[in-house]
């Protein structure tokens, strides 16, 4: 196991689109172990994506089981080649990023998503996620596409005051 260096803005590698994982070998397992160690060592992050440590591959780890107030979650997930296949609703929330220290801001994300992914052994799975976990997943999948949360910021003064009214119109398809 080894700690990996977390890339920080303005490192151009954070803006690259990552490649699919095609080999589910020992090297992948070793990298995933290192990525998890790196996530745990830093400031409490619910997720981390491979491009954040300079590996341009579609691998993310999320774990929303340890929030201050419990939220619906699937526990600790290692996701390889994750793809969001459905979005529904939208919600404003505050985000920060290991790669953007000392800054948090408001971002709009889908409230519910459906995810198709592989695990570290290459097996296929589907998950339905909502709320905080869906937000974490979208944040991490963005890293795989070279997008940071600061690319999606909305004004500090923006507030979806009557959020429920907007929900019906919030459907978005890829």
């Amino acid at each position: 196991m080894a700690m990996l260096e977390i890339l920080k803005l303005p490192d151009p590698r954070l803006k690259e689109v990552a490649e699919d994982v095609t080999r589910f070998d020992e090297d992948l397992q070793q990298f995933i172990a290192d990525l998890e160690e790196t996530r745990q060592a830093g400031p409490a992050a619910v997720g981390i994506a491979a491009p954040q440590v300079g590996r341009s591959q579609r691998i993310v780890i999320i774990d929303c089981s340890t929030t201050r107030k419990p939220v619906p979650n699937h526990g600790h997930l290692i996701l390889v080649n994750p793809e969001i296949i459905e979005w529904d609703g939208f919600e404003l929330g505050r985000e920060g990023c290991l790669s953007v220290p000392d800054y948090t801001g408001n971002v709009i994300r889908a409230e519910r998503i459906k995810l198709r992914t592989q695990d570290p052994q290459g097996e296929h799975h589907e998950y339905e996620m909502e709320g905080y976990e869906a937000r974490a997943l979208q944040h991490e999948v963005d890293h795989l596409d070279g997008i940071l949360f600061i690319d999606r910021l909305v004004s500090r003064r923006t507030d979806l005051f009557q959020r429920k009214v907007y929900q019906k119109g919030g459907k978005k398809k890829k």
Partner: peptide, 8 residues
Amino acid sequence: SPIETLIG
């Protein structure tokens, strides 16, 4: 409402 800031 609580703000649970997501760090990812």
